[in-house]
């Protein structure tokens, strides 16, 4: 793509590095910014810089946070005896949106995969164990819920963490896997359906 101006070219190149944005969209956004008052570009760039320099991660659960400790970890209404382990930040948002969970979180930042060079040291596993070991007497962790992806890597990570937690005598559970609500049986893949049958639960007719 040829540009009439080096300034436009630089802007397009930078914007098109964002995920999901190609050169054409980047050009459209660049030209749009030029049409807007200068102040709107100022406030956009200011917001981006501020985001990058001031964003923080909760020192307890590693979720995104404005303070040193995030609003979930510092809340008094949360059940501190329960920790849900997730892979990444969007997973926290997804579980929060269910409004079914009132415990705390722990964001690992990925799953173990030696091929990609990701081991326990690259993840926040030590931090999890430290957090459990040093919890105050009133806030002792009773249960850890594993909510990792249902992939071979997710399962390996769950196994690894479970072994570490068993040594500490903590109850470990994992979210159930099966047929989605509103899903039709005939369209469910065989592996999921097979697993749903093996791990069936008793039906409560009350």
């Amino acid at each position: 793509m040829n540009f009439p101006s080096k300034l436009i070219e630089d802007a397009v190149n930078e914007i098109s590095r964002l995920p999901g944005i190609g050169k054409k969209t980047a050009l459209r956004l660049t030209l749009h910014l030029l049409k807007q008052p200068e102040s709107s570009s100022q406030s956009l760039s200011h917001a981006i810089v501020k985001l990058r320099t001031e964003v923080r991660y909760c020192i307890i659960c590693h979720n995104i946070s404005d303070q040193e400790i995030c609003s979930i970890c510092s809340s008094h209404r949360r059940d501190k005896s329960l920790i849900c382990i997730v892979e990444d930040i969007p997973d926290v948002l997804a579980i929060e949106n269910t409004a079914q969970y009132n415990g705390l979180y722990h964001v690992l930042g990925g799953v173990i995969s030696p091929i990609q060079g990701i081991g326990p040291d690259e993840l926040k596993i030590d931090s999890l164990l430290h957090r459990i070991d040093t919890a105050a007497a009133d806030d002792k962790v009773q249960e850890v819920i594993l909510a990792l992806s249902a992939t071979m890597e997710g399962d390996t990570t769950s196994f690894f963490i479970t072994r570490k937690l068993n040594e500490r005598g903590i109850k470990v559970s994992t979210i159930s896997r099966g047929i989605p609500i509103g899903g039709e049986l005939e369209f469910t893949d065989e592996v999921t359906l097979g697993r749903s049958i093996l791990t069936r639960i008793s039906y409560n007719a009350e």
Partner: peptide, 23 residues
């Protein structure tokens, strides 16, 4: 494949983590 990648890391770092190998 995953186990072999892990063995390579152990061999290079000279440190073996049994608990990581177990799964």
């Amino acid at each position: 494949k995953q186990r072999n990648a892990l063995l390579k890391q152990f061999s290079e770092s000279g440190q073996i983590d049994q608990s990581l190998l177990e799964p």
